[in-house]
Write a protein that binds this DNA or RNA. Sequence first.
RNA 1: AUCUGUCUGUAUUCUGCG
Length: 384
Amino acid sequence: LFSYNTMIAGLMRYGDVDGAKQVFHEMRVRDVVSWNTMIVGYVHNSMIDEALCLFHQMPVRNTISWNTILSGLLHFRSFDVAECFFREMPAKDIASWTIMISGLMSQGQVSEARELFEEMPEKDIRVWNTLIAGYVENERIEMAESLFVKMPQKDSNSWNELIDGLVGTHRLNDAVRFFSEMVQRNPRSWNSILLGLARNRLVKQAHAFFEKNPFKDIISWTNMIVGYFELGESEPALELFEMAPDRDETLWNATIFRLGENDRGEEGLKLFIKMRAEGMNPDHATFTSVMNICSMLPSLDFGKQAHGQVIKVGLDCFVAVCNAVITMYSRCGSIHAAYMVFSHMASRDTISWNSVICGFSHHGNGMESLKLFKQMRLRDVKPD
RNA sequence: AUCUGUCUGUAUUCUGCG
C-alpha cells in the first residue's frame, strides 16, 4: 500500500496522470491516502473535474481531502463556490482557514482575509506567514511589518516574506537591514536580496552579495544575469551565462529574451538554436521570446520556422505563445497569417484581441480593427 | 521524500514616463 501510494505521488508529480490513474486502478486495497494522493495530483495538474469526481466517489474523506478540494476550487473555480464549500465542510483545521485566507488575499479582499484570521480558533506560524504574504501581495507592506513584529514566533519564511515585500516596494535599505539581522538565511533570502538589488539598477552591490552568497544556485545566477542585461551590460551578463554551473530553461529563456532587448536579436536566436542542440526543451516562455525577437528584427523566415516547431511540440495550446506568434506575423508583414493564427485559437485573452487589432491598424486597416473591436465586445472579453 | 495550507528567477499586445 505504502509503495503504491508513493508511486502514485511520484507519477503525479511528474505529470503522468494516466500512469498514476493506472496504478490506482490496479490497487486491490486503497486507503484514504491513496485517494487523497490522486485528488492532490489532479488538482496539481489543473484537473479539478476529475478531482471532484474522485472526491465524491471516495468511501471515506478526511480533512486533507476536503482541504485539497477547497484549494482546487479556489484556483480553478470561483471564490463563491469555494466559500460555500468551506462553509459546508464538516471539519475544518488550521489549513482550511489558511487556504481561505490565501484565496481572499489573492482576490484583493484584504480586510475580509484579516477578519477570517481574527475569527480563527487557533493559529499556527504558517497562517501568520500566509497573512504576511497576503499583505505583501496586496502592497500593504506596513501591515506586513506590524504583523511580523506581532507574531509569536517567526521562521525563515516569515523573514523572507517580509524581505520580499520590502524589495517589492523598493525599500532596499530596509530589506538589506532585515536580511543582516536574519539568523537563518537560506538560499531564498539571498536570492530575494539579489533580486532586489540587481533589478533596481544596483548590480554592483548585488554582485558583492552574489560573491558572498554561500548558497549560489541557478536562481542567483539568473538574477545577476538579468540585472546586468537590464543595465545594458550584455558582456558581463554573457560571461556569467557561460560560467553558470547549471542552466535550466528559465536561464536560457531569460538570456535569449534579454539579448533581444539589447538589440542583439540574432545572437538570441543563435542561443535558441544552441539551447536545442544542448538537449534542452524549449518551453512556452522560450517561444514567446523567440517570437518577440523575430518581430523586432524582423525575421519572417525564422518566425515561420519557429511557428512550425511550436505546433510540432504542441505549445500552441499556450495563449501567450499564440499571441506572440500573431505579433510576429503582423510585424513581419503577414497580417493575414496573423489573423489565421488568431482565428484558429481555441481560447483567446485580451492580449490576443489587442495583438490582432493593433496588427490591423499598423497595417493601415482601421476598418478591420474596428470590426474586431466590435466583435470583441460581443464576446465575453473585456477591452482594456 | 505516501496525502492538504504561506514562499525566490525568464516570456506575449498597447500606452505613458525615462
